[in-house]
Design a protein around this nucleic acid. Sequence first.
DNA 1: AATCTGACCAACCGCGTGCAT
DNA 2: TATGCACGCGGTTGGTCAGAT
Length: 303
Amino acid sequence: MGRAPCCDKKGLKKGPWTSEEDEKLVDYISKNGHGSWRSLPKLAGLLRCGKSCRLRWTNYLRPDIKRGPFTPEEEKLVIQLHAILGNRWAAIASQLQGRTDNEIKNLWNTHLKKRLLQMGIDPQTHEHASIVNVSSSTRLPSSPSMHHMAQWESARLEAEARLSKESMLLRPTTVQKSDTDYFLRLWNSEVGETFRVLKNEERTVKMDSQSPISSSVTKCGSMLGMATEFGLGQVGSLDAGIKKDHDPEPKIIKSYTDDVQPGSDSASSNELEDSSESALQLLFDFPGNNDMSFLNHDFFSLW
DNA sequence: AATCTGACCAACCGCGTGCAT
DNA sequence: TATGCACGCGGTTGGTCAGAT
């Protein structure tokens, strides 16, 4: 089918917006909402197409836009999310409050991509160059051999998983609320959806039995790495939000927007113990499609 | 002072998708 | 089911500015 132009382009203005146009757009939307973008320009008295108005609003005029340079934490988060989501800028932007997809896309293309390349990391695959070519001169000076990396990673993950389980038994449910909330938010979001989709895909694909150790290391590394790098010092904090059942889609039992009342969540402590196994299983089951193990190797100490 | 170059970022373009008919 | 429309998204472009030559 033929595609109709987004609007009648005759007589419509293009290029940078003037302050008068901005004022008109903001004024109209604040009074009426944007409604149909297609009809908005006419109603607001603007000689622009609806698409242009929408872009101007979402990328610049929206009141919740956060201006100013990205913080190192935001940059880290963008890289981590890019490792998971790829060039899905809108999905990444949804995890950074007040940042637009356009802004993040620009940040990536102008700063982060180059910085990763300088560090010897492929910005598309997020794999370290030394993994592809160990003899590469761009390799990090302290980068261990693959063998040692695998050994170290294996030992670390084992210890991490054990500590996580232990900590779950000791920790009250209300601690680390922000971490939990953050992960729950991620889990509820498109990022979480990506994980769930990948996990389901994994179920349908027969596991390659030739290298069980390396595959399990990769799996653990990806998910645990994600959990820890997202600020979850203990993976266990994820458990509180995941209901144990046999549903392939783990249920989030507490919305991230809910306030946790100390001592009020009577079901959670029992459920916590019950769920820790399944949650850990979830972590270990996670497919290794997105190997982010580089994130764990003092990656950000080089930042 | 003039010119060049690269970085930055706002805006545009075209495609994919969801929804209504 | 097929078609048309509106919207959102990601890739790309082009203008502006600052620093280098």
